[in-house]
């Protein structure tokens, strides 16, 4: 889903985080005639809206009496793409640095690529959202422990232990049951959270459901071979296991703002009324940002996006107008950016 990118290119704006605020900032940067790259740690756009509540109805977005999370993100994504930005997904930002000679920022991705950019808009929300690690056995990740079932066929004929009690745990168990030798679901609570219909089907299809049971260890030689599960009578039982599926839900990991030289307040980056951080040229918007009177809503994130991008335009080109003209004007007088100057 990610677009190719020429890493020799210098961008006017790099937006970090493709949630509602970051998507709108991406659109807005394009609308102002700035070149823009959007990066996100997730495989798709939407941030916490997509990861956590795509079906939830949102009631406080201006112009929409009610809109589902998925529809809002679809609209924001289409709008963001209007000016053909670069969009990079599965792209965790691991470092943010500044080249003193050129004054350009370097946004470094986990695969080692770096984006050179004149300004940065941080829209990382509550941080990258990742599967919660297993309490024991995480060291076998990639050698029998998985957190996402992408291709069920690779698990054909295997003994599989799924750890978790929600819908994803049961969905994966049901998906794997027809091809696996055995499927056991281990859940530490008394009751499953998954849909009752899934539980009925699971029992009917011979999936073993263990409640009030906890994973004690994951064992193997080069790969996982077995697990030990402690049941509700505190008896340890060894089960054969070729694959252990961690289905313990999602957990956010805050970005390392302090390592990037940014002033923080709790888990948020402190910004001034222009949305600029203590580092000139680096802006922060949405849930990632903090200022006096902050109200963390999607609605306010949109305004912060426009404020940040317009001020970023002035940072890039000090003579540029802070206000972009009205979007309904026939010929909007877009400010000339550094990029368009180079091309001229």
């Amino acid at each position: 889903m990610s677009d190719p990118i020429d890493m020799r290119d210098v961008r006017d704006v790099t937006v970090v985080g493709a949630g509602p605020s970051g998507l709108f900032a991406t659109y807005y940067a394009g609308f102002r005639g700035l070149s823009v790259t959007l990066v996100d740690a997730q495989p798709e756009a939407g941030g916490q809206v997509t990861a956590l509540y795509p079906a939830k109805t949102i009631h406080d977005v201006a112009g929409f009496p009610s809109v589902t999370g998925a529809d809002l993100i679809a609209g924001l994504t289409a709008q963001a793409r209007e000016h053909a930005p670069h969009m990079l997904f599965d792209a965790d930002v691991v470092d943010l640095g500044r080249d003193e000679q050129t004054g350009l920022f370097r946004v470094v991705l986990k695969d080692g690529r770096a984006i050179r950019t004149r300004t940065v808009v941080i829209a990382t929300g509550v941080g990258g959202i990742h599967p919660r690690k297993l309490p024991v056995g995480h060291e076998w990740h990639g050698r029998g422990v998985v957190y996402i079932v992408t291709d069920p066929d690779v698990h054909a004929g295997q003994d599989i232990v799924v750890v978790g009690g929600g819908d994803s745990a049961l969905d994966w168990a049901l998906q794997l049951r027809p091809i696996a030798r055995s499927v056991t679901v281990v859940h530490r609570r008394r009751a499953f959270r998954a849909h009752p219909a899934s539980l009925t089907r699971a029992a009917r299809e011979g999936i073993v459901l263990l409640t009030e049971s906890e994973l004690q260890s994951v064992d193997g030689v080069h790969r996982v071979r077995s697990v030990v599960v402690r049941d509700k009578q505190a008896v340890d039982v060894e089960l054969p296991a070729d694959t252990v599926v961690g289905a313990l839900g999602l957990l956010s990991a805050p970005s390392p703002f302090e390592a990037w030289g940014l002033d923080v307040e709790g888990r948020h980056v402190v910004v001034d009324p222009t949305m600029q951080t203590n580092v000139p040229g680096v802006f922060a918007i949405g849930d990632a940002s903090s200022y006096r009177g902050k109200v963390a809503l999607i609605a306010t994130g949109f305004g912060e996006a426009a404020t940040a991008v317009n001020n970023a335009a002035v940072h890039i080109e000090p003579g540029a107008s802070l206000v972009p003209g009205h979007s309904t004007d026939d010929d909007v007088a877009l400010p000339q950016t550094a990029t368009t100057r180079q091309e001229a």
């Binding site: 959202i129 009690g165 959270r193 313990l248 957990l251 956010s252």
Partner: peptide, 12 residues
């Protein structure tokens, strides 16, 4: 104190 909520909270 069932704690199912603790299991699902994405920000702990």
């Amino acid at each position: 104190q069932d704690r199912s909520c603790v299991d699902v909270c994405p920000v702990d």
